[in-house]
Design a protein around this nucleic acid. Structure first.
Lengths: 341, 341
DNA sequence: TTTGTTTACTTAACCGATTTACTGTCAAAA
DNA sequence: TTTTGACAGTAAATCGGTTAAGTAAACAAA
């Protein structure tokens, strides 16, 4: 219908060069000493006809796309979805758009996605990195692109990241279970070499060790197909009847665990006490409510975007690394509190 | 570090014109009768140096951005998050990237976002539209841009949409409650004039009427702040002690309802039977498990993206409207089954 | 009167691709 | 011998902006 207006159309209509229009629209009128009368005339006309500069052309010339690439593990996981939501809000407020994708923790998929993001000239990267993409991340950094990692980091890549104190979180949760009198405490998690997961395992392990208790760690291979998670989990619980408490390493596996317990008619905390990493509605609403290690989602999102925006705005200080470790909160609910107490 | 290669660099390196390179890379070698020997030489070199055409430049010239704009109500809502995830997968497989945003059902925010998407030259639009954006959607369609609506539609805008049979879904759920012997059934939902919501109310209303029962509808104003949802909900339940069943209009309000019931120590189904629209982990895992109207999330996503891709591929048949109404499944669980039965 | 400075713009190059319209060569047909 | 057509490519315009470099006019200083 109404053919899109270009800067040339505006220039012709007003009998002014397109350079002048460009300067005015980019707020460089004063600097370029464009007469105030003309500035007003141009602004008025632009407003009137609703002209919007073509952002592709702009990006091509300036090299800035005003886009942030967001790579999460899985956007349908409530933890990532809520962080994505918060990041989205702050990004839009600052004039940035988000392109996102789910990595599924798949290294080669992630590599492809990074290539795609580069290709799209995203200005900054927010990544929850899977293992094995050190080279790609380093290459981004070497090329001067702002990168912020979150939820986990790559130990041998020197970049900014936002994380929580995983080690202390599971340590603390385990201690809590021990204090409640549970002894045969298992840690059930996804098999992973990611930093946050290693810390979670270690925190649990150290707490058990410090109390002279035997650690019992079950690692389950992640799979998109939920049945393939449920099955080994079911086996584990069935074949370990002496377990009196389980600490789950993520919300996803925690949820699966609850499903299995329901299926096997195991009640928390009488049959098996339960704590899960990450907090969300499922845990708060469960009967009994499930004790959870709540991550400070808002703070994580805030920090991630703040650090990234700072990098985007003054590329100068990219040498000063800004990594943040946030604290979790152990939300103690009935599922982990000994009946008698 | 390694300066990005451009097509000119490739052309110079091989002593060939950039036109030729472009033809070859776009698979038009045969059509443009480029010698096979040269084609091979170029392909090999391109592969070797890892040249990737600048997609911004490409988009600027061709007018195609290979991007789909996805507008959901709230990406942190599990229903939308899982649809977004499925759409993302299919889109990436077809060479499209997703830019997304949450509308919060806010009309003016949505208008801004549509402007932004246009500005970004997204190739196609997937929108769960709030009320009051008929004009903007029509304008997209008039400009020949592919638009698919989902979850709801705009009755007076003639475009494709994917929806479920809301009317029958709540009718059927209400009938189920009546069959179970509940009589004082309330419908609690968010105040909204969106088609899916109107249908949900009507389905409930008609079912009650057909059985000669009195409808009791509570509409709650949506708010980002959950407390402002909980408060009127709490009041409603407290001041309506005769209610023996509640049908919740969305997963969000259903979840809030469960929280209130927990707080007030009301058990389902003995104190109040419960059914909620949308199904997710919270409902399946709740004790007792909550009967839910499950939307066919995969099918919705599949249909949405199929229709959109078809439109993107052959702009020809844009006159033939492809609207799909999918069926829901009433997952009957304990929360709505009379104790005695 | 000449030179210099400021003001208020404009011209033209550029970003990196695609695409239209050519060019030059050689063999077959008229 | 000239024309035609297939072949194998190329030059230049274009998409819609930004930006470095330049210019004309007015005024001030030397």
């Amino acid at each position: 219908m109404n053919k899109k207006l270009s800067i040339v159309d505006i220039a012709n209509a007003l009998n002014v060069s397109k350079t002048t229009i460009s300067f005015i629209l980019n707020g460089r009128a004063q600097e370029k000493r464009i007469g105030t009368e003309l500035v007003e005339r141009v602004m008025k006309y632009v407003e009137e006809v609703g002209y919007k500069p073509n952002s592709l052309a702009k990006s091509l010339r300036t090299g800035k796309s005003n886009t942030i690439g967001l790579m999460v593990e899985d956007i349908s996981n409530p933890f990532f979805a809520s962080i994505a939501r918060l990041i989205e809000d702050r990004a839009y407020k600052n004039g940035y758009k988000i392109i996102y994708c789910s990595t599924d923790n798949d290294t080669s998929k992630t590599k492809d996605l990074i290539t795609m993001f580069r290709d799209r000239h995203v200005d900054g990267y927010i990544i929850a990195p899977p293992e094995g993409i050190e080279k790609e991340i380093e290459s981004l950094i070497n090329d001067g692109l702002p990168v912020v990692l979150f939820d986990r980091h790559l130990p041998y890549v020197n970049t900014d990241f936002i994380e929580i104190n995983n080690l202390f979180s599971t340590y603390n949760a385990t201690k809590h279970l021990i204090e409640q009198g549970f002894k045969n405490i298992a840690f059930v998690t996804f098999a992973s070499q990611q930093t946050q997961m290693l810390d979670r395992v270690k925190g649990y392990h150290d707490a058990m060790k410090s109390e002279g208790l035997k650690a019992n760690i079950k690692e389950i291979v992640f799979n998109q197909n939920e049945d393939l998670i449920m099955k080994p989990l079911r086996e584990f619980i069935k074949t370990n009847p002496t377990i009196d408490a389980i600490l789950f390493g993520t919300n996803h596996i925690g949820t699966c665990g609850l499903k299995i317990m329901q299926e096997l008619d195991k009640k928390a905390p009488t049959d098996i006490a339960v704590i899960s990493f990450d907090d969300y509605d499922v845990f708060a609403l469960h009967s009994p409510p499930v004790t959870a290690i709540a991550q400070p989602v808002e703070e994580i999102a805030d920090n991630v975007i703040s650090v990234l925006l700072e990098k985007l705005n003054n590329k100068l200080s990219f040498n000063k690394s800004q990594s943040v470790i946030l604290k979790t909160e152990l939300k103690i609910r009935k599922s982990s509190v000994r009946a008698g107490k």
